[in-house]
Amino acid sequence: MSSPAPTPLPPSLAEIAEDFSSASNDLKLQLLLEFSDELPGLPERYAGHLDQLERVDECQSPLFLTVEVEDGTSLDDRPVHLFFDAPAEAPTTRGFAGILHEGLDGLTAAEVLAVPDDAPMRFGLAEAVSPLRMRGMVAMLARIKRQVRAKTAA
């Protein structure tokens, strides 16, 4: 009896996972730095207001995030927007946030909630960074999904 196929990633995240999975460890770290550099800053409504964001304590560096979900009639037509704050001195943490931002921002609530919990492990990053750091990325995804559930549960 074969095991079931893993739940697919959304195309935007699957493309990023493919890039990382096919890269050497050195290249994975370089890609992570690129995602760190590309992480957008907070919009003005959140700048200086970290109390409006949720801290992800599992991250080794201070990381804060929040999710906004647009109005719609169902989870299939409610786009999700992600916002992160992480210090420039924390490129790994910022890189994880950048991957999640690039792969999930703009997807619908239904698509975000369907992302498998093991998605961060599909990038092959566990070979290049410590398990403690991977725990931070897994926690970021869990917080994002929890916030989407909370903001769509009306």
Rank of each mutant, 00 (worst) to 15 (best):
P40V: 10
P116L: 00
S22C: 11
E54S: 14
D118I: 13
L82Q: 01
T66S: 10
S36D: 12
D77F: 06
A142E: 14
V138M: 02
K28T: 13
L31V: 11
G72V: 11
P120V: 09
E44V: 14
V67A: 02
L53G: 09
Q30H: 10
L27D: 13
P120C: 07
S21T: 14
A90L: 06
L32F: 08
L27M: 11
E58I: 08
L125P: 02
T92F: 02
D37S: 13
L104P: 01
T152K: 03
G124Y: 00
A88K: 05
V80T: 10
S21W: 04
A110L: 07
R133V: 09
P10S: 14
A23S: 15
E127D: 15
A150Q: 14
R122I: 12
T108D: 11
S22Y: 05
L50H: 01
A154I: 08
D105K: 01
T7M: 10
P79M: 07
L65M: 15
D19V: 13
L82F: 02
A114V: 09
L75F: 06
D26F: 12
L32K: 02
P91N: 11
I144P: 01
G124Q: 05
G48N: 04
Q30E: 15
Y46R: 07
Q60Y: 06
P11K: 03
L104S: 07
P6E: 13
R45H: 13
E89R: 11
D118F: 10
A150L: 15
E34R: 12
A142T: 15
A110F: 06
F84W: 05
P8T: 12
H101N: 14
R78N: 11
L113V: 06
S3F: 10
L141Y: 00
P62K: 03
